[in-house]
């Protein structure tokens, strides 16, 4: 009888120890912090504690996958809450693991902020910085977003048609997950190519748009543009 009691006590202690062990594991701590930060009404104290938890994961095992995820989330929150364009966590992530998907994503997020920063930096310098990033972003899903960002930035900063067209065509070739964005890009390629005198490129892009987006509001105007290119009356 006495032995059975001890067995139960040992089992309970063992279970609570393994639960505590599970609670202390970085993935569990990361998930806990994310759950707190994602709650609809997170208090300032809870938010601070969750961020401290993320910082502790980074301090505990600097090069683990959990630490990279924690670095990304902490950096991202600084971007969004404190308007820090390139937070230290992003810099550390890019320096330690430049090829890591989250490091590439962080680089793209930093670029977006730089392209449209309210600063004295010239458009030329911003766009040059964007071009220099090209080699660092290798993940196909992000390369498409990178080219889209650059294409739109070239249009925004002075309607520079040739580089904008080059980037938008690259994005379209890689693949654009959002249908609405792809529709826009096909029209943009058509328009930019038409204005640059690349009639074949323009016509191909217009045709792709007409075929792929039959319900789009721009069907008629794109058909008109194509007819103009082909020398037919719209």
């Amino acid at each position: 009888m006495k032995g059975a009691r001890w067995l139960v006590v040992c089992l309970l202690l063992g279970a609570s120890a393994s639960a505590a062990e599970e609670e202390a594991r970085p993935p569990t701590r990361f998930e806990r912090a994310v759950a707190v930060l994602g709650a609809p009404a997170v208090s300032a104290d809870d938010s601070r504690r969750a961020k401290a938890e993320l910082a502790a994961i980074i301090a505990g095992e600097e090069d683990s996958a959990d630490a990279s995820a924690a670095r990304y989330l902490l950096g991202r929150l600084k971007q969004l809450e404190n308007n820090e364009a390139d937070p230290p966590e992003f810099q550390a992530l890019r320096a330690r693991h430049p090829g890591h998907p989250l490091a590439q994503l962080a680089a793209l997020k930093v670029l977006l902020r730089r392209l449209y920063a309210d600063s004295a930096e010239s458009p030329d310098d911003r766009l040059r910085a964007g071009e220099e990033l090209a080699a660092a972003i290798t993940l196909p899903a992000l390369r498409s977003d990178y080219h889209l960002a650059m294409g739109e930035a070239y249009i925004f900063h002075g309607d520079r048609r040739e580089p904008a067209l080059r980037h938008l065509r690259a994005a379209a070739e890689i693949g654009i997950p959002s249908a609405a964005t792809r529709a826009n890009v096909l029209v943009q390629i058509g328009e930019l190519a038409r204005l640059s005198g690349e009639r074949a490129v323009a016509a191909a892009s217009y045709r792709a748009f007409i075929a792929e987006f039959p319900r789009d509001l721009r069907q008629q105007i794109v058909r008109d543009r194509l007819a103009d290119l082909e020398g037919k009356a719209p």
Binding site: D66, Y72, K109, Y116, A141, A149, E152, I176, P177
Partner: peptide, 27 residues
Amino acid sequence: EPGLSAAYHAAAEGFWRDVSSQNGYEA
């Protein structure tokens, strides 16, 4: 952002699509 981080951590399908949407929206 926390939802996206959770999705990445869980290797959830559609993570990069959501990231792409967010990038366009953010730009």
